[in-house]
Amino acid sequence: MKTISLIVPCYNEEPTVPLFFKTVEQVFADHPDEFENVKHEYLFVNDGSSDQTLNEFRKLHADHPDTVHYVSFSRNFGKEAGLAAGLQHATGDYVAVMDVDLQDPPELLPQMLTTLESGDYDCVGTMREDRAGEPPIRSFFSRAFYTVINKISKVQIIPNARDYRLMTRQMVDAILELPEYNRFSKGIFNWVGFRTTYLKFENAPRAAGETHWSFWQLFNYSIEAIVDFSDVPLKIATFTGSLFAFLSVISMFVVIIRKLMFGNSVGGWASLVTIMLFIGGVQLFCLGIIGNYIGKIYLETKHRPQYIIQEKR
């Protein structure tokens, strides 16, 4: 009998954990035919929660020791570390990644499993039909992010795609072969390839609690994604530097010729200072881009673990 491992990263999700477990269990109970030859297990990942999330895991494990498992980090390492830990500890023939807030509808699991077992696909992902209920400014920047990254990266990322997906063991093993410290899972899922199809669903509110992602955190996450999957910003910095170097040479010849022909140089210290400040700003901008890539290299060369486990069941 095959097994489905459900990876569920959590950070301060005390009220949503029991709701999630109850809802998913009901889905399995309501579809006995689809899951007749498949058993399931939960792998919760506690990403250094400061509330009672870990105690909720302990309760579920005590009541369902063969079905519910968890790993708990020594501190908060971030969403990507939680996903990596889940994939590394999952043992199922099929592996699903889900959010605990029930914005990823568990009702899609039977259809996802049926699609995989047909043999036509190695992964069934999900995507939202719209971003209803989301602040307009966040929706705008989300669309802008997908537009930019798909234009400058060879790895195409489906707009509105979720991490929620069901994968075969072969695809999970391929993902685990990527040891990088800096991770952007949506990009990695597409980078490894494999036959993937997507199911659409309507956006739904959280079952309980509040989102832990601020606008600034999402912005930084998008910058990391671009740096991880594209070197175009470096090419932009190179082009910009070359352009201004060329313009500065032209300007130098103009000043020399004007001095020789008319006997005076270009007047106006204010304009000169303005130009110098502008070029200096461009140089700092380009150095910032380069520094971002160097920082990523620095973190990779340290070979630090992506996370540290304090408790595991």
Rank of each mutant, 00 (worst) to 15 (best):
G82R: 01
N76V: 09
D51R: 12
F77L: 08
V38W: 07
L83F: 14
G78L: 07
F73Y: 05
S50N: 14
N46I: 04
D63I: 00
N76M: 04
P65T: 02
K59Q: 12
V45L: 14
H69L: 01
P65K: 14
N55Y: 09
K79F: 12
L60V: 01
P65R: 14
T67E: 13
L54D: 08
E80K: 11
L83I: 08
A81T: 00
L43N: 00
G82K: 00
S49I: 06
D51I: 07
V45Y: 11
N76F: 09
L60W: 07
L60M: 11
D63V: 02
F73G: 08
Y42K: 13
S50I: 01
E41W: 00
P65W: 12
T53V: 06
V71K: 13
D63T: 01
V71A: 13
Y70Q: 03
V45S: 07
L43V: 03
V68K: 03
P65M: 11
A62E: 11
D63K: 07
F57A: 10
R75L: 02
V45D: 08
N46F: 00
A81F: 08
H64C: 05
E56T: 02
Y70L: 08
H64T: 02
T53W: 11
K39C: 04
D47H: 10
T53F: 10
F44E: 05
E80A: 15
D66I: 02
S49N: 06
D63N: 10
F57N: 11
V68H: 02
S49H: 05
S72D: 10
D66Q: 15
Q52H: 13
G78H: 03
F73P: 11
H61C: 01
K59S: 11
D47A: 06
R75K: 15
H61Q: 14
E41G: 03
H64W: 05
G48H: 09
N76I: 00
S50E: 13
N55I: 06
S74F: 07
E56A: 14
G48L: 01
G78W: 04
K59L: 08
N55T: 07
A62Q: 14
Y42S: 10
H64P: 01
L54Y: 15
L43W: 00
K39L: 00
F57M: 06
D63G: 06
S49Q: 05
V68Y: 01
E80Q: 15
V71P: 04
N46K: 09
R58L: 02
L43F: 09
N46M: 01
H69E: 02
N55L: 08
L54Q: 12
N55M: 06
N76G: 14
R75E: 12
K79Q: 15
L83S: 01
T67F: 08
H64A: 03
N46Y: 09
H64Y: 12
S50R: 14
R58C: 05
F77W: 12
G48D: 07
S50Q: 15
K79L: 12
